[in-house]
Design a protein around this nucleic acid. Sequence first.
RNA 1: GGCAGCGUAGCUCAGUUGGUUAGAGCACCGGCUUCAUAAGCCGGGUGUCGCCGGUUCAAGUCCGGCCGCUGCUACCA
Length: 697
Amino acid sequence: MPAPRARRILVTSALPYANGHIHLGHLVEYIQTDIFVRFQKLRGHRAVYLCADDTHGTAIMIRARAEGRSERELVASMREAHLADFAGFEVEFDHYGSTDSDANRRLCGEVWRALRARGLVTSRDVRQLFDPVAGVFLADRFVRGGCPKCGASDQYGDSCERCGATYGPADLVDPRSTLSGATPEVRSAEHLFVTIEALHDFLDHWTREAGALDPRVANYLAGHFLGEPLRDWDVSRPAPYFGFEIPDAPGHYWYVWFDAPVGYLAATDEWCAQHGESFDTWWRRAAAADAPAEIHHFIGKDITYFHTLFWPAMLEAAGLALPTKVRIHGFLTVDGQKMSKSRGTFLLARTYLDHLDPAALRYYYASKLSGGIDDIDLNLEEFAAKVNADLVGKVVNLASRTARWLEHTGLAADYPDDGGLFARAAGEGAEIAAAYEACDFARAMRTIMLAADRANAYVDAEQPWRLAKAGTGSAARLRDVATVALNLFRQLAVYLAPVLPRLAAQAGELVGGPIASWEESQAPLVGAAVGPFVPLMQRVEPKQIEAMLAASRESAAATPSGGTAVEADIGPPNTDSGAPLAAEPLAPTCTIDDFSRVDLRVARILSAEEVPEARKLLKLTVGLGGDSTRTVFAGIKGFHDPAALVGRLVVVVANLAPRQMKFGLSEGMVVAASGAGAEGVYLLSPDAGALPGMRLH
RNA sequence: GGCAGCGUAGCUCAGUUGGUUAGAGCACCGGCUUCAUAAGCCGGGUGUCGCCGGUUCAAGUCCGGCCGCUGCUACCA
């Protein structure tokens, strides 16, 4: 197989929004991209993986406000969390930037000037609802009110969930801002637009002819957007807005979807500065003309048109290089359904890492990703079965069952006759590589596992354990058989290295040294030392999955219903606001004896129901283990869905004197955090492993 | 409400431009093996290819209709 000429490949994943944590749905894309990049590097190409946090927009502004800190504080703490999650899953960026950077501001300005220079920017007034208390313009989903048709209350600003009528937010009966509760006003504001219709011919041609898009996507675009004149793209938002003010239009800010893709350019620019590279040779057409770089964008299907219409239009207008490939993937379901907080299947990256091996998810995703735009399903039962059968049972087991016989002797000096097994799998390298190149990782995994099956069958047929018992007369034969098996194992590790970098590294430690090139799959090792075998990968146990789901359910239940999830633990401790403590100063000092009079216990919520007549009470039955249960009224109605509470562990004051309430006798108290004028009541949960009845000391 | 995609074995999926008796893994059953992380190997049922109709010598595959599911969208592209 001739060594392919080295390519320069710039690869991006969509920029995660700084409004929330990374979850398993996000990871489909980052793992997919990471596998692709690692594959290209293994093949000897110059691949650069770039990404950044997407930091601007109304949602960030509102969330920061709710948390009582600045947008930049929010963005900075979320960045740390994102990077930690990616590192945990072995997603390895060459550079990770931010759209809130100097480079991005400068490059936005450059693209903007190009659009202006080509006469593609116009302006006109847009009428929109405005929240006079919060001081911001409101998207439809931030407005609720009565349906003008059927009168149903508390409907969104665009359509009625009860009768299905559609209307504008201004038509609502008694409209309210969901931010402040204020009655919104209709206001008019100037917006700036890009007239991308002027680039219609270019887009027609690029979407169909450039080879960057799957024909299905090109057809979709042709049928839905390019079949008629393109509407102007609204690219500005009036103040207040967290983002970059437009230099030649004071009071106007670039819409987040304008500066987000420019973040790809900014990340490239920063990476170039750090590595002595020239930005121009990656992105400027003139400079790159003789040896153009490839540009691959990995995105979810939801943001297709931003990356296939607006983004190429911006690049075209600015004279920058166009994407070589826009690779679009589908969404993740868990056990066949949309991820759900109450089912515990809204799985954050961190929650997964607390319980399971990232390699297991990387392999599972690889086995499901075929390069298409179909959604993929994380079936948790299949997940465990597949990882255990394929990785532990077949691949790792191959080394586990043969390495011990070579620990003292190392590999045989000549590669033995293996019936053509190694050569056959080496010959399949081109097919496996083609599948990786096409992002059809599922096909690659199938082909690799067939080779693993053949390798195990070989071991079974040669029965090295019998050779071991047969004594010194069979020692040479035993060494040959184990040499074959270990070579086949290392060959599999090379093929799997893009998916399982840690396994590849461990395989290198066992025999042959670090795996640095795909070519290592093509020739067997001989005479090399063999290290002591250490377990390479643990089985996925059902208990771990259950624990992860339980933890996920509990953290979801702790999130106030309605509104954005607001996690308090996303940043370094010293960035927390002092407001809650100031609002409720510490109580007078008490002694340990004082404290010990309060008997706090872990309890499990056995049932939860609304108390219809009560404004804030839920009626809970909690269990302290065994037959010990009691009824507790908790003032958490409206913040917790009763159904979601059942089963979770909480902390109760177990020796509190019973109190006769209007709705019944309350035999204790569930402790929860609240205060500082902030809304929300937050139940406490013990770490996994705590049992009902345990006392807090 | 708008748009798109999907529907093949119990589960997750392959099925290339229409072409023999429709495939894989898991699960399940039987047997073998015991070196290995209760791992491995061999054999075996696995099926109205969502429903109805059409084109064709030939339809899982192409066309139309229907049903079901899913996703995106709803500051409109």
